[in-house]
Design a protein around this nucleic acid. Structure first.
Lengths: 211, 211
DNA sequence: ACAAAAGTGTTGCAAGTACACCCATGC
DNA sequence: GCATGGGTGTACTTGCAACACTTTTGT
């Protein structure tokens, strides 16, 4: 097969995987064992394989060891500064992913609070910043906020998750009004059990999640 | 210098260059002379050079023959389907650009009405659709709509341009109220001359354009 | 005179924001 | 009984949408 005769940069996919846990918005990091940036924390990433769609690379990077299915994935931005990798021209197509608790990820890597990240290798701090910004923006005008939730959830749990993501408190009555009036959720008829408080109605997402 | 040992796709930049002229939203296309898709119209594009930032590739593609400076450029999306180029794995980082009339572009290529495009090569129809969608969305929440204007313009001209981009009429009084109240424009004190109507106030953009 | 665009306010509706109390449960 | 979160309504403000007529200029 003919090949175009042009310089060929390496192309990687870097992944910003988010989850909400313990009142923190967290991202998954891995520790590099080889140069450059050996010993530093970085985003999980990998080279794009032949005949592999970019989304497949992103999925592969996330599920290299753990099986994670039905993960929300969205292309974030492509970072191509010639000096972003000190040894070679590497263009990185960044994606972000959202995992919910029921997907109980147990692959490699460590979850870090986004408000207290260590110094990252490459331009990964910048990539995480971009991802957080996008995530927060989309929370208000899309259904992305529901992806962090398990199949059934209470409005209180939903609100606490959104507050964690946005990093600021939300008014309870206004929040419930907005969620209910937009008809994004349906009552399951069930009630939560346990907890030192009255049982709460359990809701589910009304339809599929729009991006 | 060490090179990563991994498959190396070709990486191109494809550019969706917009302008508004003659009551039409137009994009710049070039006719391919070589396979694949010889004879078809496509977006201007080119391979990313060594040590060249992606934005520089986009600028180079646009100004290969014509000198165009201070063009608004924004990364759109990265298209990486393995079959998007029939001969080779080619990942395309798409950008869109906005030219205003005073930049009087006269390089290669032909301007087409976006509502009447010919059949394009590769996945370029999809790329154009994505760019138009993004452009229309940003018109309402950013200052991108002013980039199509020369340095001084009347509110009528601005409105007609926005209507062309959106493909629907806007209410004159609401439009003027919105523009003025958001303090995006300043009166220059001058008036337009000519035309079978009263002279109109000339405005300029208040500050720099935000993305 | 006529055609063409400039300029100008009010009203109604929808969406968002601020704000406080009682209740059911677990411990 | 006390701590915890569940659940509920109103008033105000702001932004968006609908809607028509007079004025100035060029031909």
């Amino acid at each position: 097969m003919y090949k175009y005769e042009f310089p060929r940069p390496a192309v990687t996919v870097d992944l910003v995987a988010f989850s909400v846990d313990g009142g923190q918005l967290r991202v998954l990091l891995v520790r590099r064992s080889t140069a450059p940036f050996a010993g530093r924390w970085t985003l999980p990433g990998g080279f794009v394989h032949d005949n592999e769609p970019l989304e497949a690379s992103a999925t592969r990077v996330l599920s290299a060891k753990a099986e994670v299915s039905d993960v929300y994935l969205e292309q974030l931005y492509t970072f191509g500064d010639p000096k972003r990798d000190p040894r070679d021209r590497v263009i990185s197509v960044a994606y972000f992913a959202i995992l919910n608790p029921s997907q109980n990820y147990d692959g490699p890597g460590t979850w870090f609070d986004v408000t207290a990240l260590p110094e990252l290798g490459f331009d990964h701090t910048h990539i995480v910043d971009t991802a957080v910004q996008r995530l927060r923006a989309k929370l208000t005008y899309s259904d992305i906020g529901f992806v962090f939730m398990p199949a059934e959830f209470t409005l209180g749990e939903l609100q606490r998750n959104w507050e964690t993501i946005l990093g600021r408190p939300l008014d309870k009555r206004n929040f419930r009004k907005a969620i209910i009036s937009k008809k994004r959720v349906l009552e399951t008829g069930k009630k939560s059990v346990g907890g030192a408080h009255p049982p709460a109605k359990l809701y589910m997402l009304a339809h599929d999640v729009a991006s």
